[in-house]
Amino acid sequence: MTAPPRATHPRKVLTVLCTGLFLIGLDVTVMNVALPSLQWDLGPGPQGLLWIADGYTLALACCVLAAGVWSDTHGRRRAFILGLALCGTASVGGGLATGTGQVVAARLAMGCGAALLMPSTLSLITVVFPDLAARRKAVAVWTCVAGLGALGGPVIGGLLVERYGWRAGFWINVPVVVGALAATGRWVPESRHPRPGPLDRAGMGAVTCGVGALVWSIIQGPVRGWTDPGLPRRRSSRAA
């Protein structure tokens, strides 16, 4: 691994990385409390609401492994920046959405951005904190921030939705992303694996599809039933 520059301030780097991680936890749950307001405004059906709430998690679960491999090969700082930019751009799209499909697409894109953010944050911590004791403390802070983001989502989302409407659940990400991007360019060092091995595209695709199918089944199971084959139901030929 490439060592960070000596001018790098580890605590500032940790703050920036934890900001990105807090954004991930926040976006997992922030839209849950906005669903009634969103339903009143856009009128999505039950399936639409389900995908708005869980599409983010599905995209994150599908892409996180491939994103981690990509960040190790092409640069963790680069992956972190791309993840922030994708989350910010998708949040703007969600905030301007006029239909259910646009909101779902924004949530899926935000999940892909989060998949770039999550593994790069932890990998950068191991580079910025080479001392084992300091690294343990940094990872402990990283873990606490991840939990705080998920717990703070409903509270922050409730306050925003009550005052500004469901679109605020998207717009809240924009200033966070802008600030994190500026701080990343100033303090976060670049690092990558010094000798990355060949990319197993077939294996990566199989894992991505397998994880996606598993998470999709968990999301759809309570709605469709755990024994449903997932095929379209034929109409009965019998007359009523």
Rank of each mutant, 00 (worst) to 15 (best):
A150M: 14
L159G: 15
T73D: 12
L160E: 05
W142C: 09
C144H: 08
D200T: 08
A180I: 02
P154I: 00
G94W: 04
C62I: 15
A202Y: 04
G75N: 08
Y164D: 06
R78G: 07
T73A: 15
V174F: 02
T121N: 14
R201A: 14
R135W: 03
R77E: 03
G94T: 08
V176R: 03
L82R: 02
G185M: 04
G165N: 05
R201D: 07
G95R: 01
R135H: 10
A85G: 13
E162T: 13
G113D: 06
V103N: 09
S123H: 06
C112V: 15
L181D: 10
V127Y: 04
T98F: 11
G99D: 13
V128I: 02
F80T: 01
P189W: 01
V92A: 14
G99Y: 08
G158D: 01
S120M: 03
R186I: 08
W166K: 01
G152R: 05
G93N: 01
K137Y: 11
V178N: 05
R77G: 08
A146N: 15
I172R: 00
L86V: 12
V127T: 14
V104S: 05
V178I: 14
A140V: 02
L199I: 13
G197F: 07
W142D: 11
P175R: 00
A146I: 10
H74L: 06
R192V: 04
A106M: 03
A79W: 00
A182Y: 05
A202K: 14
A85D: 10
V145R: 04
T184C: 12
C63H: 00
G185Y: 12
F80L: 12
M110N: 10
D131N: 07
T184W: 01
L151E: 07
A134P: 04
V155C: 08
S71C: 09
L84Y: 03
W187V: 09
L86K: 02
A109Y: 01
L108D: 07
T98E: 14
E162L: 06
C87K: 00
P154M: 02
F129A: 06
R195F: 09
T126D: 12
V128C: 05
G157N: 01
T184A: 13
L151A: 14
